[in-house]
Design a protein around this nucleic acid. Structure first.
Lengths: 340, 340
DNA sequence: AGTTGGCACTCAGTACGCCGGAGTGCCAGC
DNA sequence: GCTGGCACTCCGGCGTACTGAGTGCCAACT
C-alpha cells in the first residue's frame, strides 16, 4: 500500500517543505531529488499519500504539505539522528566546559541549544527530588533570625530565612546545625525531610519551639523546591524566523513561554538521555500550540535522569537536526554534571 | 510661539494616538477632547507644531502622529506621574509581600511590572558591588575539594568549588572559615577581596598553598559577580500587542532581549528610586531600537540604588501609566529589600 | 499493472483602475 | 485671531482581469 517509492516521496516532501516553507509540487520534487520517475507518477503517489492522511493541500491546485501524521511517519521511519560532526562536538564540549557553576551550565546549555537548532530552547533545572542533601548550614542573621542554606548533590543551593520565636544562643545553633547535618546529609530530600522531624524531641524543652520552626522551614524548602521547578529559556529571537502566521504560531508560543507550568508540561517526563522524545503538532499537550513541535530528552544519569531539555518550534522544523542537537547537548551536560 | 492651546493640542494628539494607534486628524480631535475651538483652528496649531518638529504626517492628507521630540515634550512638560489607585497599591504590596527570597522578589516584580504596564518588563538583579559580605561558608565535598558559599547582604548567594592542591584537615578548614568570616563579614565586597589576601600569611607553611587557593576563588567569585550582572525579563507575550510593523519593532526587540549586555545598557545607570528615567526612540542607546522607548528607575536605598528596573515598549506607549507603574514597583521593591 | 505525456481545470497572487472618505492647506470673511 | 468653505491629495478597499503553478484524469505505451 505504501511502497518504498511513496515513502521516498514523503521524505522528499518533508525535506523540501522544511527547507522552503512552501507547498511542494510534483515537478519541483522530481527536479530537486533524483527520483527516477515522471511528475505524473509522483502525482499518483501523492494522491495515495493524501488519501492516507500523510500530506494535504492548503487549497486545490497548490502543492502538498506534510500533515502531523506525515511528520510522525517521517521521524519514526524515514530518518535517523544524524551524528554531529567532529567540529560540532568539539564546539559543544568547549562551550560547556567553561561553566563555573550549575546556573552557568544551564544558561550555556540553553544558549548553545538555541544556536545549534536556530529555535527556542528550554532547559529545566535539575530536579531536587532525586538528589541528596550535601550540606545544611545555619547562619545567624540577627538574634531572632537565621538563614538556612541547603546544598544539594546536584550543586543547587536553596536558602530560607527562619524567624525564631525567641533568640537561640550560638552554641545551640551550632548544635542544631550539627544534628541537622548528621541526620540529613547523604539522604534523598524527601527522606531527609522525614528524618529531621525527630530533632525537636532531642532539644532542650526551652529551645523546642525554635527548633521546630527551623525544621519546619527546612521541610518547606525541600517540599517547595521539589514542585517549583525552574526552567531557562533561550533563542526567543529565533521566533522571528517563523515568518508568516504570526497569530497562530508566535503569539501562543510567546504566551506559553511565560507560563513555566505549561513549559514543564511540554517538556514532559524526563526520559533517558539516549532517547529523544518528539511531539508533533496536536500531540503537544496544549491546544494553543497545535502547530508547534517539541523535541526533548532527559539529562543526568542514564537510569535516573535529573531533568529535561529540548527545543520548541514550528511543526515544520528540521527534525533530524534538532534531534541530533538535543541528543548531543544532553549527553555533554550529563557528563559535566557527573564530573562536578 | 507655543501657547497653551498648542500644547493642549499636542497633549491631545499624544493621548489619542497612544490610544488608537492611528494618525489623528483635526476633526476627531475637537470631538474627543473638549477644545473649545473649531477644527480649522486646530489645523493651524498643528501646522505650527509640525513646523517645530513635534508632530509629523505619515503621508500628505493623513492625520498627525507625534515625533520623538513630541513625546519628549509631552513627558517633560505635559504630564505628571499619575498616582496609583489605592486598590492598585494594595495589589502591588500583597503581590510582592509573598516573596520568599531574592530570586522570588525579582521574578514577582518582573511579572507584576509586565502585567501593570502590558509591556515587556526588565528587572536587574541587585548589584553586589555595593553590598556587603554577610557570611562565608566552607563545605568539605571530598578530601581535596571544598565548596565556598558567599552570602551577601542583598540576600544573594554565590558558590564556587575550590580544588585544593592537597587535602586539608577539618580543623584547618574550620580555622580558615573562621578567619575568612572575621575579616570579610560586614565589608563591602571589593574591600573584602582585598582584606582576605592577608590570610595565607597567617596559615601554617604546610597549608599555605591551599589557603591561597581558597582566597583566590573567593576573590574570583567576588570579581566575577560584580561584572556579571543578571536580569530577569517578563511579559514578552505583550509584544504581540504591537500589531503591525513586525520587522521594525518586534524583531530587534526580541533580539535585544537575548543580549543581556544590551539590556543593561538600555536600563542605564541606576538612578534614585524617586526619579524615573524615560528614553524615547532615538534616545535609546541602541540603533536597532529606534522605535522603542524605555522607562526605568533605580531601586534600593534612595542615595545608593542597588540596580535598575523598567519597561520597554513602542515609542507609542502610555508614558504616564508606565512611569507610575515603574515608580510604584520600584518603591515597593526597595521597601521589601530594606526589610529583609 | 504500472508509468507516462497530454490536457483541461482550478485557484492564489498580482496588477490595474476606480471610487469614497478622511484629512489637509489656504483663503476670505467675521 | 478664529472660523467656515472649498479645492486638492492620497490611502485603502473593491472589482476585474490575467498569469502561472499545480492538479486530476485519461488514453497510450511498456
Amino acid at each position: 500500500m505504501l511502497d518504498d517509492r511513496k515513502l521516498d516521496v514523503l521524505r522528499a516532501i518533508v525535506e523540501d517543505y522544511v527547507h522552503t516553507q512552501e507547498p511542494v509540487g510534483s515537478k519541483a520534487l522530481v527536479e530537486r531529488h533524483h527520483l527516477e520517475v515522471s511528475p505524473a507518477t509522483v502525482r499518483n503517489d501523492m494522491a495515495a499519500l493524501e488519501e492516507e492522511g500523510f500530506i494535504t493541500q492548503p487549497h486545490t491546485s497548490a502543492g502538498r504539505i506534510p500533515t502531523d501524521k506525515g511528520y510522525r511517519l517521517f521521524v519514526d521511519k524515514l530518518t535517523s539522528i544524524k551524528p554531529m560532526t567532529g567540529a560540532e562536538k568539539r564546539a559543544i564540549a568547549t562551550f560547556l566546559q567553561g561553566a563555573v557553576d550549575l546556573d552557568d551550565v544551564v544558561h550555556r546549555s540553553v544558549r548553545l541549544l538555541a544556536q545549534l537548532t536556530q529555535q527556542v530552547a528550554i532547559v529545566q533545572y535539575p530536579t531536587l527530588a532525586r538528589s541528596t542533601v550535601r550540606h545544611v548550614e545555619l547562619v545567624t542573621l540577627s538574634s531572632s533570625r537565621l538563614l538556612l542554606v541547603l546544598i544539594t548533590s546536584a550543586g543547587r543551593v536553596e536558602q530560607r530565612v527562619v524567624e525564631l520565636p525567641k533568640p537561640l544562643p550560638d552554641d545551640v545553633v551550632a548544635d542544631v546545625r550539627a544534628r541537622l547535618n548528621t541526620c540529613a546529609v547523604g539522604q534523598r530530600l524527601s527522606e531527609a525531610a522525614v528524618r529531621v522531624t525527630s530533632l525537636p524531641d532531642q532539644a532542650h524543652a526551652a529551645d523546642k519551639a525554635a527548633v521546630t520552626q527551623i525544621v519546619a522551614v527546612f521541610a518547606e524548602a525541600v517540599a517547595d523546591e521539589r514542585t517549583d521547578e525552574k526552567v531557562a529559556i533561550g533563542g526567543t529571537a529565533n521566533l522571528t524566523r517563523f515568518g508568516d502566521d504570526f497569530d497562530r504560531s508566535i503569539k501562543p508560543l510567546l504566551e506559553a513561554l511565560e507560563e513555566h507550568v505549561v513549559l514543564l508540561k511540554l517538556l514532559g517526563e524526563a526520559t533517558s538521555p539516549s532517547l529523544v522524545t518528539v511531539r508533533i503538532g496536536h500531540e503537544v499537550p496544549h491546544k494553543q500550540l497545535a502547530s508547534t513541535s517539541v523535541v526533548a530528552t532527559g539529562y543526568g544519569p542514564e537510569e535516573q535522569p535529573l531533568a529535561t531539555l529540548g527545543v520548541v518550534g514550528p511543526t515544520r522544523m528540521d527534525y533530524p537536526g534538532s534531534m541530533a542537537a538535543v541528543h548531543a547537548v544532553a549527553r555533554y551536560v550529563s557528563q559535566i554534571l557527573s564530573e562536578a
